[in-house]
Amino acid sequence: MSTCDHLAHAQDPAPRTPEGCEECLATGGRWVHLRKCLSCGHVGCCDSSPNKHATAHFSQEGHPVVASFEPGENWRWCYVDNLLG
């Protein structure tokens, strides 16, 4: 499996909004699945969700790695290198 420095050095900060997507909670939006930013703990909704807040967070902040924030899942994704870890 390929790897990248972003995945290798990703942290595991506490989630900023453990109850769901930060932006959807603020606006009354809905999500399908959740992703947690491994740079700052932002919790955003996945690209199958209407607002795609996790990807929007990457686009705005440049934080490269997210992890699934779904129970029982423990994968990570690097936006920069398009790699699953």
Rank of each mutant, 00 (worst) to 15 (best):
Pro18Asn: 14
Asn51Met: 07
His6Tyr: 00
Pro71Asn: 10
Glu22Thr: 13
Ala67Gly: 13
Val32Thr: 04
Asp47Gly: 02
Glu61Cys: 12
Lys52Gly: 04
Asn82Asp: 01
Ala26Phe: 06
Arg30Gly: 13
Met1His: 14
Asp5Tyr: 01
Arg16Phe: 02
Leu83Thr: 06
Val66Thr: 15
Glu73Tyr: 01
Ala10Gln: 04
Glu61Trp: 10
Lys36Met: 13
Val80Pro: 01
Gly29Ile: 08
Ser68Cys: 06
Glu61His: 15
Asp5Gly: 01
Gln11Trp: 02
Arg76Phe: 11
His63Met: 09
Ser2Gln: 05
Ser39Thr: 06
His6Arg: 01
Thr3Ala: 04
Leu38Gln: 03
Gly20His: 06
Gly44Lys: 06
Phe58Met: 11
Glu70Ile: 11
Gly72Val: 07
Glu23Ile: 09
Leu25Tyr: 09
Ala67Leu: 06
His9Gly: 00
His9Pro: 00
Thr27Asp: 06
Arg35Asn: 14
Asp47Thr: 08
Gly62Arg: 14
Phe58Asp: 03
Cys37Glu: 05
Cys37Gly: 02
Cys46Glu: 05
Lys36Asn: 12
Cys45Arg: 10
Ala54Thr: 08
Asn82Met: 14
Gly29Glu: 05
Gly28Arg: 11
Val80Ala: 09
Arg76Asp: 08
Ala56Ser: 05
Lys52Pro: 05
Asn82Cys: 02
Ser49Val: 14
Lys36Gln: 15
Cys40Ala: 15
Glu19Ala: 12
Ala10Lys: 05
Val66Pro: 08
Ser59Cys: 14
Ser59Trp: 04
Thr55His: 03
Asp81Met: 02
Pro13Trp: 05
Asn51Leu: 05
Ser48Tyr: 07
Phe58Trp: 15
Glu61Asp: 14
Asp47Asn: 09
Glu23Asp: 10
Val66Met: 03
Gly29His: 11
Gly62Val: 13
Cys24Ser: 10
Pro50Asn: 03
Leu25Ser: 12
Trp77Thr: 09
Tyr79Glu: 12
Gly28Lys: 14
Ala8Arg: 13
Ser49Cys: 15
Ala54Leu: 10
Arg76Met: 14
Asn82Phe: 01
Gly29Val: 11
Ser59Glu: 11
Gly44Glu: 00
Thr55Asn: 12
Ser48Gln: 13
Ser68Gln: 15
Leu34Asn: 07
Glu23Val: 14
Glu73Phe: 09
